[in-house]
Design a protein around this nucleic acid. Structure first.
Lengths: 340, 340
DNA sequence: TTGTATGCGTTATCAA
DNA sequence: TTGATAACGCATACAA
């Protein structure tokens, strides 16, 4: 069943059928009705491949995320897909993992599929080693590239992100203002965003005149980013003699590990120890006590990313290349901020 | 840059270029090398739309899931996408939500995009009211339809699922064998799978000679499926005078709400109350005490689903229409099974 | 308002 | 082993 069949069925030319399909104004109401009826009756659907060949687009956006099973990224994908579909774009999803070579390969794959744009979700695409970002810049030579929680300054690349640095700075400062000065920072990513968060922590210490000690800033590699892994790392830290009355982590799951450690070692939270996490997902409400966390406004980021993309498609000249939203600190039972 | 350009560049016909691209054997080594070099040099990529038009496929699979931000579905999407890509298929993802009309519309959208197959992820696609499943059967007339955690017996539909009924039966029986007879079951879905789970609960009671009381089987509607929502529901139940020494829930998040209730009302777990959840995700390890839960082998389901699909594509006649895997009960601190 | 003719970039058939 | 050409199904410029 193709456009010729409909043409024959109705006695009009394929051009007219095409016009009806595409809602052209210059078709008589009578003809339109006839064609529409034939289409309805036969269940005809235009062949998207042929259409794609002619128009050189299939209205499809490539979405890359490291791991859609990560709750943060999964939610991002959800918001983005919904908004894209509202704008009549479909989503081609690639879960690339964290390996650079795979990311490059996946990008190639998306481009060879002739997607209309690529959205890179998560802070793990922009590398500190800038050469490694070449593949993103190259892609942008072909299609618009949107970054959710990442920044890259190059033509045709648009960044939407959360001010992670300010958020961690604020949390840290609240800890300090409430008398917690023996602070530990646990982080699991050295991405652009990860380093921004770390900077927020160290800046807050600096501004408060607290010396920055290397052994209080602990990197957790990916296979230890779990409740048990984090618990062990804090436990080891304590065994090494590091004292702390406040722990801030770059991800909620790490903070939950801290809570588990605290329970095991009889520490009272928040009296003996303040704890804060990052992302503000389900688990921050599931743990005990419930976790103070940073809500980085993921939904806002994602919706803005899609609407920006649509502006780019519309060739709106005033599209901002970079948008930064502020985060929100959600206080729960693992801290007790008398002074904010 | 198209096949004609490469043809001109190398002095061979487009047919030969096409042969090289598609790895045809009947090309001389010399010609092949020349063409390959030209392709490499020019960065030419075959136009997938044109190819799609000719072959009537773009090697793309449509994936529908209700909500990719649900941790369970998100993980499923992750596994499926990875495996599809290993088999050179791309994934077109649609998050349909739980509304039937939207599901139908999304299915149409996938079919009109001419995907090679559709994978329905999650137990919420197959409805008890069988008429509502017509759109799935209709889709199967065009492309293979794969169900992950759902069953529908019709041509060209393949089901992969977990034996939810047996899992809940086993959990319930363990509760009973360990002296817990005042049981409550909390569930949030009346899907095929949801009703199977419920059946497992009631069958276990029956087989143990325990009367089934309506007020001990509580349905939780979607907007109450949260830690706080579930907590309130259990609290209300207790206020109504319902006594319980064991609560089994169809989803971990509900169980966490039960734990929060227990803490608030001074119940000791597992001494006063056994609690078990379903899905065995992050949160079952994050809560306090950690939650006994059912691992329904999601990764196994997903991988099997994709490999089955590949067999269908290969026109392997012996493809099973339905595969059921057994679940595994992961015991943690919210129960104390002396007898299994 | 409608129709004719062409191009889009492949793959595949058939002939050489 | 290679080349010429039809077919895939649509959108659209141009003509009527």
């Amino acid at each position: 069943m193709n456009i010729y069949d409909i043409s024959k069925k109705t006695g009009v030319s394929i051009a007219t059928v095409s016009r009806v399909i595409n809602g052209s104004a210059s078709v008589s109401e009578k003809t339109r009705a006839k064609v529409l009826a034939a289409i309805e009756e036969s269940g005809y659907t235009p062949n998207v491949f042929a259409r794609g060949l002619g128009l050189n687009t299939m209205k499809t956006i490539g979405i890359m995320c490291a791991d859609s099973s990560d709750p943060y990224l999964a939610r991002a994908v959800y918001y983005i897909e919904q908004d894209l579909r509202k704008n009549n774009y479909d989503s081609l999803l690639l879960c690339t993992g964290y390996d650079h070579d795979v990311k490059v390969k996946c990008m190639d794959q998306l481009l060879s599929k002739r997607v209309d744009a690529v959205i890179l979700v998560g802070s793990n695409y922009v590398e500190f080693n800038d050469e490694m970002n070449d593949y993103i810049r190259n892609a942008a030579a072909t299609v618009p590239v949107m970054l959710v929680n990442g920044v890259l300054n190059a033509p045709n690349i648009y960044s939407t992100l959360c001010d992670d640095r300010a958020a961690i700075y604020e949390v840290t400062t609240s800890f300090i203002n409430n008398g917690r000065k023996k602070l530990v920072y646990l982080y699991n990513s050295r991405s652009y965003s990860g380093m921004k968060k770390l900077g927020g922590f160290t800046d807050a210490l600096k501004d408060a005149g607290i010396p920055i000690k290397k052994d209080r800033i602990v990197f957790i590699d990916s296979h230890n980013v779990s409740v048990q892994g984090a618990k062990k790392i804090v436990s080891d830290l304590a065994k090494k003699g590091v004292k702390f009355d406040g722990i801030i982590a770059a991800d909620d799951i790490i903070s939950v590990g801290v809570l588990k450690y605290a329970k095991e070692s009889g520490l009272s939270i928040p009296d003996d120890l303040f704890v804060a996490g990052y992302n503000n997902f389900d688990i921050s409400e599931c743990c005990e006590p419930e976790l103070t966390s940073v809500d980085n406004k993921l939904e806002v980021l994602c919706r803005h990313c899609v609407s920006t993309l649509m502006s780019v498609f519309a060739e709106d000249k005033s599209v901002p290349k970079r948008t930064v939203f502020s985060a929100e600190i959600v206080e729960r039972a693992t801290t007790d901020f008398k002074i904010k």
